[in-house]
Amino acid sequence: MDDDEDPADGNFAPARADWTATVAATESDWEAVVDLRMRVFVDEQGVPEHLELDEHDEDPLDSDVDHLLVRDTARGGEAVATARLRAVDADDYGALDAGTERVAKVERVVVARDRRGEGWGARVMGAVEDRARGRGLAEAVLHAQTHAAGFYERLDYAVDDALGTFDEDGIEHVRMRRRL
């Protein structure tokens, strides 16, 4: 986390940034998260709606699952990116370091189509990683669509070659991980 970030105020963006990154805490926040996910995964990528919202979304404002929401305050608080964070058993996903009991599972990372290429993906990933560190998690794992693996590699994630590629909701993925 940068010295000018203040997660104590619930915002994982730098203090002087023209954007915010917060854990969804209101119905309005949750609606923005769902809207982004539906536009990207269901409308653009053809994931069936019933698969997009799952058991980890059942009580989004009162659970141990965090839904990070990035808003562009320079554009009136427009919701531009989101990601989901769960603390999971390392035995289920593996860990880089022996003795690790829980790892951060980063999921449902999306950036609005018309805002891609502007750095929002890196912003939401930085925010979700800061949140994971704040929850005491020292490693992150994610399932990346194969076409997006290069993006995550630029953020220091490495492909878990032992697993290979796999299908998730009809889209080819790879497992990736990094120390936080």
Rank of each mutant, 00 (worst) to 15 (best):
E168C: 07
D72R: 14
A149C: 07
A149V: 10
G126W: 00
Y93P: 02
R108Q: 10
A8N: 09
V34E: 01
R177N: 02
F12R: 12
A83K: 05
R71H: 05
W19S: 07
A81K: 11
E58W: 04
T100F: 10
G76V: 04
G117T: 08
A158S: 12
G170F: 13
H50P: 00
L85Y: 03
R102T: 04
G134Y: 00
E49A: 11
H143C: 07
L85F: 03
D72G: 05
L96A: 11
V141N: 06
D160R: 12
R113G: 08
D62H: 15
W30Y: 12
M38N: 05
F41K: 02
P48F: 09
D169L: 07
V174S: 01
T22V: 15
N11F: 02
V47W: 07
D169A: 15
F166N: 02
G126Q: 04
H147C: 06
P14R: 08
I171G: 09
T100S: 06
R39F: 01
D97E: 15
R16C: 05
Q145G: 04
H173R: 05
L155M: 13
E129I: 12
A95I: 01
T20G: 10
A140H: 03
A74M: 02
D57T: 14
F12Y: 15
G170H: 10
R84K: 12
V124G: 02
R16S: 10
V174D: 00
V23A: 14
R86I: 07
D57F: 04
V23I: 13
E31H: 10
D97W: 02
A83E: 02
A158Q: 12
G150F: 02
R102N: 12
G164N: 03
A8L: 12
G77I: 11
A162C: 00
R123Q: 08
V109T: 01
P7D: 03
E139Q: 15
A132S: 14
E107I: 11
H143R: 01
R113I: 00
D130T: 10
D59K: 15
A132W: 03
R71T: 15
A144T: 06
E139W: 05
V174N: 02
L51K: 09
H67Q: 05
A13L: 07
A148N: 01
D4M: 13
W19N: 08
T22M: 11
D156L: 09
V159G: 04
A21C: 15
A104I: 09
L163E: 09
G136N: 11
E153I: 03
N11E: 05
L155G: 00
T100P: 01
L51H: 06
